[in-house]
């Protein structure tokens, strides 16, 4: 049983959905990044989703691109990211930790070595943003061999056969996007994803968490209401980093507040 399974079982009992914040590791620097990760956990994040900074993040909008650039400008390297993750794992035995990375970082030293490092650092899942299901088989195979859940993206423009393929290659959770485009902050949750979620369920995909554009408690409620098991918020979290670069204390405080508010919106009782 993966940490995601355990988390979803617990949330079921609590009559809650999951709230999962995303940050880029090493943003704005290693020390503050560790403090931020601790704050996310302390403020009620059910799981963490983290990125390893990459020079050419084609699936990301301006906010997360800038996060990558800040980390790279600080000289943050993948090995620093593994150390950060390992530290958080040491402090938190149960929280699921997912990586969101780009393919070139995965293949650089060989796919197997990457998943080995991810497992050693205590990561639970890896989503490779620029590897679609049609190319994902070797990545999923290596992930599973190392006890890592391969996570794929379920998209509104995928047909049923494609969603079935995604379901087969995906463990832990499926990352569902409800709109086209790159990561970013939106006012609304776009397409009503009920249909997509129903098909994913039918083809046997793991629980769905919605991402891309989730920035308010209202959107979290909307996502859960249409049947998602959780909501992932990236750019809206990272924006608090960007806006408070010269005030690390305020940054931590604001992000803590944001996570508490978003988590509060995950109750299915109300």
């Amino acid at each position: 049983m993966s940490r995601y399974d355990t988390m979803f079982a617990r949330l079921d009992q609590e009559r809650c959905g999951a709230f999962v914040p995303f940050v880029t590791l090493g943003d704005p620097n290693l020390e503050q990044s560790l403090a931020l990760l601790r704050m996310l956990v302390a403020s009620g994040a059910d799981a963490l989703e983290v990125g390893i900074p990459f020079s050419d993040p084609v699936a990301d909008g301006p906010v997360i691109q800038a996060a990558s650039q800040r980390a790279l400008a600080q000289g943050v390297r993948p090995k620093d990211c593994w150390n950060l993750l390992a530290q958080i794992r040491k402090e938190n035995a149960d929280i699921p930790m997912g990586l969101l990375v780009y393919a070139n970082l995965v293949v650089r030293d060989g796919i197997d070595l990457f998943y080995q490092r991810a497992a050693d650092a205590g990561a639970d899942s890896v989503l490779v943003a620029d590897v679609p299901s049609a190319e994902a088989a070797p990545f999923a195979k290596s992930a599973r061999a190392h006890g890592i859940c391969p996570v794929l993206i379920g998209t509104p423009n995928a047909n049923k056969d494609r969603l079935r393929q995604i379901a087969q290659l995906c463990d832990g959770y499926v990352y569902v996007v409800t709109r086209a485009g790159v990561t970013g902050v939106d006012q609304e949750v776009h397409l009503p994803p009920e249909h997509l979620l129903a098909v994913l369920k039918e083809v046997g995909a793991p629980p769905a968490m919605l991402g891309f554009g989730i920035s308010s408690p209202k959107q979290v409620r909307a996502a859960l209401k249409c049947g998602a098991a959780g909501a992932i918020s990236g750019s809206a979290v990272v924006r608090h980093i960007e806006e408070n670069l010269d005030a690390p204390g305020v940054m931590l405080h604001e992000i803590g507040d944001f996570v508490r508010k978003m988590k509060a919106a995950t109750s299915l009782e109300s």
Binding site: V58, D130, V131, S133, I153, T155, A158, I166, A180
Partner: peptide
């Protein structure tokens, strides 16, 4: 074809 899933179609 190493692109985000959304572009594959």
């Amino acid at each position: 074809s190493f692109v985000p899933e959304i572009l594959y179609p």
